[in-house]
């Protein structure tokens, strides 16, 4: 029961309308990307789903329940890993779980091992590289009890090589769990490579402009990025994003 339905959601801050009747859905076990330019209201949308704000109009439903203004219904990976410097990696990744129940440290250990962080279980965040920190942040949201994961441009601060490694890693981990994922990014390739569907947002105010269903089979391989087919999708989405054609 982790289907997210966003229907006709609008939100303004003062005079400025940020979201204009945004509607979309994320089905159980689906990986959906929201693609839009910076400042297109993606973060506001996340804050609404996270329950930090309530929408002016429209409804957000998760698993059939209205979650307007309800916090803690989703698990979240922020843009910046936001690991607590005084906690070890192990204590950091159980934080999301700890907020709602007694944490299961054994499960966390296993998960860290699979994330390639076995040696760093008892290390502190400053001893990790940027990519490792972001992996730990994602493990933290995987371990959280909520079945729906929101990722807010998690790889935008990483260099190109690390980013590709992280994307592959994310997919491999995700395919084992298949929690529903909403992934926000401004990188077209990243969106196509990872997602089942890509939603293109327009800006000022944001609304869902176009929806693309990506047909590539899973598990996906790195070489996919270089195929003609992939490039065709990239062009199409690029034009949509720029408002041409």
């Amino acid at each position: 029961m982790s289907e997210l339905k966003v229907s006709e959601v609008s939100k303004s801050f003062g005079e400025k309308k940020v979201l204009q009747s945004v509607s979309f859905s994320v089905k159980e076990g689906e990986f959906v990307s929201l693609l839009g330019p910076s400042g297109s209201g993606k973060s506001t949308l996340f804050h609404l789903i996270g329950g930090l704000f309530t929408p002016d109009e429209g409804d957000l439903c998760l698993g059939g329940e209205n979650i307007n203004g309800k916090r803690g219904r989703i698990s979240y990976t922020p843009q910046n890993p936001s690991l607590f410097p005084w906690r070890t990696v192990l204590d950091n990744v159980v934080l999301g779980e700890e907020l709602h129940a007694k944490p299961n440290k054994e499960r966390a250990r296993t998960m860290l091992e699979r994330a390639g962080l076995a040696e760093y279980v008892n290390a502190y965040p400053h001893q990790l590289s940027g990519g490792m920190r972001q992996r730990a942040a994602f493990v933290r949201s995987l371990l959280s009890p909520q079945p729906f994961i929101c990722l807010d441009e998690p790889f935008s601060a990483l260099d190109e090589f690390t980013r590709l490694d992280m994307q592959k890693w994310l997919l491999s981990i995700w395919e084992e769990n298949r929690k529903s994922v909403l992934f926000v990014t401004h990188n077209i390739e990243e969106a196509i490579f990872l997602s089942d569907r890509v939603l293109v947002l327009s800006s000022n105010p944001a609304t869902v402009k176009q929806e693309f269903t990506i047909p590539f089979e899973r598990p996906r391989r790195e070489e996919l990025v270089l195929t003609e087919e992939f490039l065709k999708w990239k062009k199409q989405i690029y034009h949509e994003l720029r408002g041409e054609e």
Binding site: G50, L52, R71, P78, S82, L95, L99
Partner: peptide
């Protein structure tokens, strides 16, 4: 921000 998004009291 993370704490609030994750539903911390």
């Amino acid at each position: 921000h993370y704490m609030y998004m994750a539903g911390a009291s």
